[in-house]
Structure formats: C-alpha cells, structure tokens
Simulated scan of single mutants.
Amino acid sequence: MNAFAEVIGDPIAQSKSPIMHGFWLEQAGIDGSYGRSHLTTDALPDFFAARRSDPHWRGCNVTLPHKQAVMPLLDRIDPTAQAIGAVNTIVSRDGVLIGHNTDAPGFLEPLRPQLAERHLLRTARILGTGGAARAIAHALWEEGFTLIIAGRDLAKAQALADAFGPQDVHVCTLDTFARPLDFDWGEAGDRLDLVVNATSLGMTGKPPLPIDFSNLPPGAIVYDAIYAPLVTPLLAEAQARGHPTIDGLSMLIGQGRIAFEHFFGAVPPSDPDSEAELRARLTA
C-alpha cells in the first residue's frame, strides 16, 4: 500500500484539499493518495487510534469543527499552533502525532513581496474572531503589524486581542466598518495597510460583508479568506475602487503547500503554469 494522507471534518464533502493534493502528487510523480474522511467529534479518538498503527498514513489536514478538539489527542504540538490555539495539520512520524498550524504561514505566502519591503508603519484590519482570524492575527503580529480586530461580539474580539501585547492591538465591533468614516487619509506614504475578511460573510449562501470603503486607507490591500465564490462582493468592490486584492484560494494553496511537504517530503511546484492549472481545477 502507498503513502496516503487526508482531510477530516464535519462536514467534509465541500473540501477542495483532495483536488489540490492530488494535483501535486501527480505533478511530483509520487505514488500516493489523498482523501477525505467525514468524522464527528466523538469519532476522533478511535480514528487516531487506528491511524497511529498504519505505517502508510502520513497525516491529515483538519477543518471545521475539529481544529481545537484534536489538540488533546496529539503527542506534540508545534509552538506556532500552540500559540494560535488551533491545529489544522497533523503529521504522523512513526505513530507519533504532531500538530501544526499551516494557516498562518499559508496566509502570508502571497504577501511575501510586500513583507520583504521596509515600512514605517504596518496596519492590519482583521474582520472576524474565529479560528482563521486567530491564525491570521498571529501571523501578522509576528510580521510587525499593528492589529485592529473587529468582531460581531466585542468580547470575542477582546479575547483574541488579549493573546498579544497591550500595545498596538485595538478592538471594535464589526459594524464600525459599515459606517462612513469622515477622515482624510492623505497619501499612502511609507506604510503597508491590509484589510482581511476572516468571517463567513460574502461566502456563497451568506450575506455580503457590510463595509464602507471610507474606512480603508488608500492603497490598502484587501484580502478575503473566502474562496467560494472566488471573487466575493468585497473583492469586486475593492477592485472597482482600485485596491490591490488577494483571493481566498491564495491562502488555501499556501497552507496546503506547507502541509504537502510535511506529508510527502516534496515541495509542490509553484511555477506560473502549474499554479494556473491548479487554480483551474479548483474552480472547475
């Protein structure tokens, strides 16, 4: 039997990870496979007990609602995942289960050109307080950003902010960004501004994210973690207003790339042709 990995969650049918990892296995010429397993929280202990003893199992990605529930079942947890408080990738090393969080570095991957530059000020407005927001906030804090965390529940926003230092972290309610802001931003200057949607608003079947663009500094990068639809109402309006944008597939591919290397010991191709083909498959 060949090496295999998988994604677990509840529900799981919507996951695009098998398409992505299957493409990379094909491109790398690796004789392996990647599937999906639908698991309830109650089924997790028995699942890991069975997988531990399988020498061909390389690990799994973890999606909702298990990113925290899996943590007590693991042998070791990477410091980044521990700090974020969530695991989205589990690697098996001779039956030892190690938890990682690849959401944080995966989120940063499309921002690497901007992060390589020097700035007098870096500010990120993070809309949302869930697991994705925690990973994103941690990643940006490590890159020297001042954080503004907005949540529908102010207490949840404050709880997320409390994970960082008392300085350079601010909280507000999500509807703050829906109200017009009478403020002269001036020129963009030597700063990097980022606005991130880490909520489910704008996803297919959900209402759009209510946001008034007067709250966005000129030149701010608008990054939506949602990838269904690929161009959310937020990104469509941002593009129409001349803001640079990053879609949710970028984060999905970024975190998956790191997980694939953990599972199969190979770096997925990242050349423009391979990237274009992968995106075509993921959006077909």
Score class of each variant (00 low, 15 high):
residue 9 G to M: 04
residue 9 G to N: 03
residue 11 P to C: 11
residue 14 Q to T: 12
residue 16 K to T: 13
residue 21 H to K: 02
residue 22 G to M: 10
residue 29 G to H: 06
residue 29 G to F: 07
residue 32 G to L: 10
residue 32 G to S: 11
residue 36 R to W: 04
residue 39 L to F: 08
residue 40 T to W: 12
residue 43 A to D: 10
residue 43 A to F: 10
residue 44 L to A: 10
residue 48 F to E: 05
residue 50 A to C: 15
residue 52 R to I: 06
residue 52 R to S: 12
residue 53 S to A: 15
residue 61 N to W: 01
residue 66 H to G: 02
residue 66 H to Q: 11
residue 72 P to L: 09
residue 74 L to C: 04
residue 76 R to Y: 15
residue 78 D to N: 10
residue 80 T to C: 06
residue 85 G to L: 08
residue 91 V to A: 14
residue 91 V to G: 01
residue 93 R to S: 12
residue 96 V to N: 13
residue 100 H to G: 00
residue 100 H to D: 00
residue 109 E to L: 07
residue 112 R to T: 11
residue 116 A to M: 03
residue 125 R to L: 10
residue 127 L to S: 02
residue 129 T to R: 01
residue 130 G to F: 01
residue 132 A to H: 02
residue 134 R to L: 01
residue 141 W to A: 14
residue 144 G to T: 02
residue 146 T to L: 14
residue 149 I to M: 03
residue 151 G to W: 06
residue 152 R to C: 14
residue 155 A to I: 11
residue 161 A to N: 00
residue 161 A to T: 02
residue 162 D to T: 11
residue 163 A to W: 12
residue 163 A to Q: 07
residue 164 F to W: 00
residue 165 G to Y: 08
residue 166 P to F: 11
residue 167 Q to W: 07
residue 168 D to E: 11
residue 172 C to V: 01
residue 181 L to N: 05
residue 187 E to T: 12
residue 195 V to I: 15
residue 200 S to T: 14
residue 202 G to A: 07
residue 202 G to N: 09
residue 204 T to G: 10
residue 205 G to R: 14
residue 207 P to M: 15
residue 208 P to K: 09
residue 208 P to V: 08
residue 209 L to K: 02
residue 210 P to Q: 08
residue 223 Y to L: 04
residue 224 D to T: 10
residue 224 D to G: 06
residue 225 A to F: 06
residue 225 A to D: 05
residue 229 P to N: 12
residue 230 L to M: 15
residue 231 V to H: 13
residue 232 T to I: 08
residue 239 Q to T: 15
residue 239 Q to F: 14
residue 242 G to K: 14
residue 245 T to K: 03
residue 245 T to C: 14
residue 248 G to T: 03
residue 248 G to P: 08
residue 251 M to A: 07
residue 253 I to G: 00
residue 255 Q to Y: 00
residue 256 G to Y: 02
residue 261 E to K: 13
residue 269 P to W: 14
residue 272 P to W: 08
residue 275 E to C: 13
residue 284 A to D: 10
